[in-house]
Design a protein around this nucleic acid. Sequence first.
DNA 1: GTCTATAGGGGGATAGAC
DNA 2: GTCTATCCCCCTATAGAC
Lengths: 227, 227
Amino acid sequence: METDTRTRILDAAEQLFVRHGLDATTLRMITAEAQANLAGVNYHFGSKEALIEAVFRRRLTGLNEQRIAALTAFEEAAGGAPLKPRQIVEAFFGVAIRMAADRNGGQTFMRLLGRSYTEPTEFVRTFLAEEYAEVIARFKAAFFKALPDVPQEEFLWRFHFMMGALSYAISGTEALRMLGPIDDADPEALYARLMSFLIGGLRAPLPDSVAKHIAKPARRPRAKRAA
Amino acid sequence: METDTRTRILDAAEQLFVRHGLDATTLRMITAEAQANLAGVNYHFGSKEALIEAVFRRRLTGLNEQRIAALTAFEEAAGGAPLKPRQIVEAFFGVAIRMAADRNGGQTFMRLLGRSYTEPTEFVRTFLAEEYAEVIARFKAAFFKALPDVPQEEFLWRFHFMMGALSYAISGTEALRMLGPIDDADPEALYARLMSFLIGGLRAPLPDSVAKHIAKPARRPRAKRAA
DNA sequence: GTCTATAGGGGGATAGAC
DNA sequence: GTCTATCCCCCTATAGAC
């Protein structure tokens, strides 16, 4: 073992942030858990806010690099042709699920991250927006190319819904128990489950209100509710 | 106007909880906003924790009653036959989206609620679990009856993913901006969008790892996406 | 780099007058 | 029911010894 203080603080903060939330976690809790001195946080990071950013950045940067690498690999294999939506979904969400299965810290972190998109704290949201800017630009472009029939605004909503499902898939272990006794131990099963749900949602027929704006007035006999 | 102090405190708390989170919202902020006295919170509610519960209960009870009423109406119309999945989805999620469109407080509240399933604070989660117990039991039963082919565990995960999508649909206005400029002003469009996404996900083909366990090896030529 | 001690501010809750 | 005043606790951040 013998990890250095800085790392022990990051590890402790990560775990406590997941368990209690950013705000309710105090520097005292963190330094106690990390067996470090209270002043250590400010020495190593400068402030609590800077510590929070460091906790996110430590793993988020790598996660998004992996996402871009996975997408790039698919794109090179396709040689200029549009990718299959499933491939893009895998590159974005699959990487996340895989990290969430990594018991070596990744799991803890992803639970934290899953909650953070809707975090009320302003600086966390703006910080995340910056961290995500590049990966989002890349994936938006790939999706638009792969789904030329889907209006972009419609797609962005679906992407947003997919993020919601991912967030719950990862961080919702406690919320899940509300639904009953569910086994959440098998990451492979979770991966398969989430993937088919996401693809199903992404490729669902467009709602009538949108579909009717599209230049494809093919017979639609009464828009009976499909099921 | 002339609302009473108790109501003004609830209104102020609701708004501030959405904006800053439960923890970061102080009683002083609440009473200042409500033009009430600091001691008023403890007089009317007993504690901050009790105030939080009151804020949730004020609208959540009605929401879940509406959900059950909508489901019951469908069930009575069906006369014992299984409902269409789309009807059940409408009864659960449609009611929520409609409340989220209600500018008369419902909108604010739903944003708060959307975030709260993954709330780190223990007592909020256990409180919500109690409030939801009945409605969840009713809807689980209806879904199981409507989707006899879907293994129950599989369905519960999908329900969980659907909750995630709903949560983001409602509360993710800020997170959405990360994706680009999107119009989120039209509740009808949101309703239609979310609904088709949810149905698509719910009715997606089962993942192979699950499908192969099912005693229905009937040729399924490619599990065409249902719609 | 790590510690102790403390400054300086804000939190929730309550006693008791009105 | 509403107010003021205040208790007591815990927070983050920092100064300065080691």
